[in-house]
């Protein structure tokens, strides 16, 4: 890790004015310090925003305004999250470990970098790390790589579980910058790669995420789930994942939400699938048709064709679970296909 100057910001303005092109914002630090340790990034200044007044969760209009410094564990335990946005809690609790969730912030979770092993290896060409250098992942080990929205410039996936649920709930990212506030939907916050590069940075160097706004989920509050396929039962990134939320009245779906994780450089909102589900009865057949739509245009970016099948099936599973209703208490193994079936 390179030497850097450490600055603790007491106000948002101070944080923004301290920010520089080669600086970095330090919140929970769980991804930033890791990337610094492995030499992927080398900021010359760290601006510590952990003391900024961004630690609150406020209710507004049936929804929530979540401070960017709210720690993942606190967000997952918040009563309104548990009662009205349970897929957010389930996604959070399926991610990382209890220790990491106690440190990681909401804003930092959104800003976390891909776990593409070539991005993490400073010796490999990577357009995301070093624009114009190429993409070593293509032709390499691609089990964890994209099947949607990728280009020859970048096939990385975004690793967050939280973002998948947030995207499904129409969350909005509030960003402060020198020119004031701007808002970006979670769904499109992370740029997709284009033909030549991995896409622009989601934030300017002097911008800071201040809040995440979750609108009222209405009738979807208790029909929402997150499901995550992993290689071990816990403490692993998703191979694929899905968040689903449904509003069901009189045996018909009034509105549906579906987002996929582990498939693209952003949480992949499946709007065509949602549209197709509206007005349908919540049956496995309807979910299967919707899942086909969700994976429309999917293509392997390497030796990862099986992920298309897995993503389709996990979408169906999430919809089935959402239709069955959110359990009063989240399962012992959140988002697991096993849910804690074996209580030996």
């Amino acid at each position: 890790m390179n030497l850097f100057e450490y600055t603790r910001a007491e106000t948002l303005d101070a944080a923004m004015s301290a920010a520089t092109q080669d600086g970095a914002i330090l919140a929970g630090g769980t991804n930033l310090l890791d990337l610094m340790k492995i030499g992927v990034i080398s900021p010359t200044r760290l601006i510590d925003i952990t003391r900024l007044p961004l630690h609150d969760i406020e209710e507004h209009d049936g929804g929530l305004l979540i401070g960017a410094m709210v720690r993942n564990a606190d967000l997952a335990r918040h009563p309104v999250i548990l009662s009205r946005f349970p897929a957010v809690a389930e996604a959070l609790l399926s991610g990382a470990s209890a220790q990491l969730r106690n440190a990681a912030s909401t804003g930092g979770n959104i800003m976390q970098q891909t776990r593409c092993s070539y991005f993490q290896d400073p010796l490999s060409p990577c357009n995301r790390r070093e624009p114009g250098s190429g993409c070593a992942a293509i032709g390499g080990e691609t089990r964890n790589h994209a099947i949607l929205g990728w280009t020859e410039a970048c096939i990385a996936t975004h690793p967050s579980d939280l973002c998948v649920a947030l995207a499904a709930y129409d969350a909005v990212v509030e960003i402060a910058g020198p020119d004031g506030l701007r808002e970006v939907p979670m769904e499109s916050f992370h740029p997709l790669p284009d033909a030549n590069d991995a896409g622009p940075a989601p934030l300017q160097s002097d911008e800071i995420i201040t809040h995440i706004r979750l609108p009222d989920p209405g009738g979807m509050a208790r029909n929402a789930r997150y499901v995550k396929l992993r290689e071990r039962t816990s403490f692993a990134f998703a191979i694929v994942s899905a968040a689903a939320a449904l509003e069901i009245q009189d045996g018909r779906i009034v509105q549906a939400r579906l987002a996929l994780g582990g498939v693209a450089a952003r949480p992949w909102r499946a709007r065509a699938a949602e549209k197709a589900l509206a007005g349908q009865p919540p049956t496995e057949e309807a979910f299967a048709r919707a899942a086909d739509l969700a994976l429309e245009g999917a293509a392997p970016s390497g030796d990862n064709r099986a992920k298309i099948t897995l993503a389709r099936r996990i979408a169906i599973r999430a919809l089935i679970r959402a239709a069955a209703g959110t359990p009063d208490r989240l399962p012992a193994l959140p988002a697991s296909v096993f849910e804690g079936d074996c209580n030996g």
Binding site: L229, E231, L310, I314, R317, V337, F338, G344
Partner: peptide
């Protein structure tokens, strides 16, 4: 899981 292939050694 027959659809997703995840395995857990339950006993």
């Amino acid at each position: 899981d027959p659809d997703l292939g995840q395995v857990r050694v339950s006993r």
